[in-house]
Amino acid sequence: MQSVTANLALLGRSVLDRVAAIGRAGMVLMQAVIARPDPLTSFPLLVRQLYSVGVLSMVIIIVSGLFIGMVLALQGYTILVDYGTEQAVGQMVALSLVRELAPVVTALLFAGRAGSALTAEIGLMKTTEQLSSMEMIGVDPLRRIIAPRFWAGLICLPILTMIFSAVGIWGGMLVGVDWLGIYEGSFWANMQNSVDFFDDVLNGLIKSLVFGVVVTWVAVFQGYDSVPTSEGISQATTKTVVYSSLAVLGLDFILTALMFGDL
């Protein structure tokens, strides 16, 4: 009897802990977004974060985009050639990239590359008391450390997604046209006929914007909320990758259902 109540209490406590963590995360988000940035000091900070979050993720995005586009074209070709519709490879590559694969894969790679780095960096700042000392000097670390990183993630992910799509489609063309010999004109024409800028490209971008918010939010919060020890940082980094990947995949389903569900 006693163990039942004890277990119940334990369960209740862990639920309460989670709810409290969500509450803290919400507060961090609020303060990072609301924090009125001082344009003079915060612009260089933002540029620096754009560099470490965006520019440094570019190589992995370009390489993966290229290969995914090439694989899509190859797989699509082997199936479509049976029906004599291999010129639809372009359409297939473009639609699956623009609507689905580019936002999702970019967000997952971004969580692994930039998200984990953000968490580790902020966690390390916390462990080495940099956040505390900033507070003692009279600067709010949410404003100075968290806010620029959050905005940088938000800006970078859609850009990376576009690069991923473009490179992937180019890779698909490389395989489809140059290697498998699909007629280039029909490759592009099929693509242009079926891809709509607003319905497909912009919806993909909206997806990636949502993913950008989620992944960066999870990353900065896990860093900010980490236990200030080396063990705590490694746990927080793992959590960032796991939580943000799950959130991206779950949200992707919801967004897809909302955007393309009625087609």
Binding site: V47, R48, L50, Y51, G54, V55, M58, A94, V98, C156, P158, I159, L160, M162, I163, S165, A166, V167, I169, W188, M191, Q192, N193, V195, D196, F197, D200, V201
Partner: peptide, 27 residues
């Protein structure tokens, strides 16, 4: 160097958007 890198990054992003708009979706 950082500014240059970010500039290149932004440019590549815009070029990609342009490619998606014009040659992929035929806008």
């Amino acid at each position: 160097g950082i500014e240059l890198g970010v500039g290149v990054f932004m440019l590549v992003g815009m070029l990609s958007l342009a490619m998606l708009a014009i040659s992929v979706s035929g806008l």
